[in-house]
């Protein structure tokens, strides 16, 4: 699993990357009450706002960590947004992306580096 400074995680299986937000991000957001997903087929560039996760208080963009095309979105989330708080780094994945350049994933932080990054916040 790799991580971004915007608190997304990426997990690669073949050429499909699964993306979600980290436990730290979910904890910072508080109770998630709404999730907006991208359409399947949408082409993403790194840094594109691809989904929105909203708590009672505020809306937060989820950014594409890598380039690629959305192959699947987690359609359980709009009906059960609380999953994002309960299991952010597994069942509450947000999208799956067909990766165009795997090197972009290698360039992201590993868990040790991400945890060191969290310590600086």
């Amino acid at each position: 699993m790799r991580f971004t400074k915007d608190h997304e995680w990426v997990s690669l299986d073949g050429d499909i990357a699964t993306v979600g937000i980290t436990a730290y991000a979910a904890e910072q957001l508080g109770d998630v009450v709404f999730v907006e997903l991208p359409d399947v087929g949408k082409a993403l560039k790194p840094g594109d706002a691809m989904a929105v996760v909203e708590s009672v208080k505020a809306a937060s963009d989820v950014y594409a960590p890598i380039a690629g095309e959305v192959t699947e979105a987690n359609t359980a989330l709009p009906d059960t947004p609380e999953m994002v708080n309960q299991d952010p780094e597994k069942d509450a994945w947000i999208v799956r992306i067909k990766v165009s350049d795997k090197a972009q994933i290698d360039a992201l932080m590993d868990r040790t580096a991400y945890e060191a990054f969290l310590d600086t916040l």
């Binding site: 508080g30 109770d31 009450v33 708590s55 009672v56 208080k57």
Partner: peptide, 8 residues
């Protein structure tokens, strides 16, 4: 802004 229980 909140305690351990959370806003909801």
């Amino acid at each position: 802004v909140q305690y351990r229980d959370g806003v909801l």
